[in-house]
């Protein structure tokens, strides 16, 4: 026998839309711990397998909310440090000067990168960057799913951030950029693997106006190498000719 049919809309005691938001008042702050014990005492119910499938697909395409102290974390290491923005392009011999910078960069970058590791990764990889048909996206997904994946986030001196994901077992790494500035038509961003101070070209790329790029590096990734980015002529260079805008070390 139901009383719901007799509810008078004017009856202040009736349950309904009016008190939906204001009336539920279980005190989670005070009794959340006890409530957890009560919840865990209920019989578990196994979800259908496709629930997880659907969920993991959503997760792969859903950016995460940045941690609350993001601003401090992102701005602190953004100081270009040993690479002042006013630094003129090296005249000659460009290769040696650039190489020297990689060395001096390393220790500072390690500190900056360690601080940046705590930063989110998912927030950078937005759904519009990762279209399923995109080879880069598929390779990135493979790297992220690798058991030995490393993820490092670092600021880019020219603006934005770079996230390096790498897997030695796959021999692959990818850089995910967010907020990277556009270049003039005769320029390109160049990726480098730097091992024992020796830079090896790992590909050229340009960026669209949205500043978002997923770029899988050419060549074989080895743990312990440094991944760097410089601005080069659009035809590329055999070695870096400008200061790196970001350099990210990896753990051996």
């Amino acid at each position: 026998m139901s009383r719901s049919g007799t509810h008078d809309p004017a009856d202040p005691r009736r349950s309904g839309a009016d008190d939906v938001d204001t009336d539920f008042d279980f005190d989670y702050d005070e009794f959340g711990d006890v409530a957890t014990e009560l919840a865990l005492a209920l019989p578990p119910v196994d979800p259908s397998p496709d629930l997880k499938t659907r969920l993991m697909a959503q997760v792969a395409a859903t950016p995460q909310v940045a941690p609350l102290p993001t601003t401090a974390l992102r701005t602190a290491p953004a100081d270009p440090g040993p690479f002042p923005m006013t630094d003129a392009r090296p005249a000659s011999p460009a290769e040696e000067r650039a190489r020297a910078r990689w060395f001096t960069r390393t220790s500072a970058t390690l500190v900056a990168a360690a601080a940046a590791v705590a930063l989110f990764f998912g927030g950078v990889v937005t759904a519009n960057v990762l279209s399923p048909a995109d080879d880069s996206a598929q390779q990135l997904a493979a790297i992220v799913a690798a058991p030995d994946v490393q993820t490092v986030v670092a600021p880019v001196t020219e603006g934005g951030s770079a996230t390096l994901v790498s897997s030695e077992s796959l021999g692959l790494s990818a850089m995910v950029f967010d907020g990277l500035p556009e270049l003039s038509a005769d320029q390109a961003y160049a990726l480098w693997y730097i091992t024992d101070g020796e830079p090896t070209p790992a590909g050229l790329f340009t960026v669209e106006a949205n500043g978002e790029v997923v770029q899988v590096l050419d060549g074989d990734f080895q743990a312990g190498t440094i991944v760097g980015v410089t601005v080069e002529p659009s035809s590329g260079s055999p070695a870096p000719t400008t200061s790196p805008i970001v350099a990210i070390p990896t753990e051996a």
């Binding site: 997880k52 993991m56 997760v59 792969a60 995460q64 941690p67 590791v117 705590a118 930063l119 989110f120 990764f121 998912g122 927030g123 990889v125 992220v144 799913a145 058991p147 993820t151």
Partner: peptide, 10 residues
């Protein structure tokens, strides 16, 4: 998970 680790989420 907060660092974007999908395997940890799984």
């Amino acid at each position: 998970v907060a660092t974007g680790d999908q395997r940890a989420f799984s």
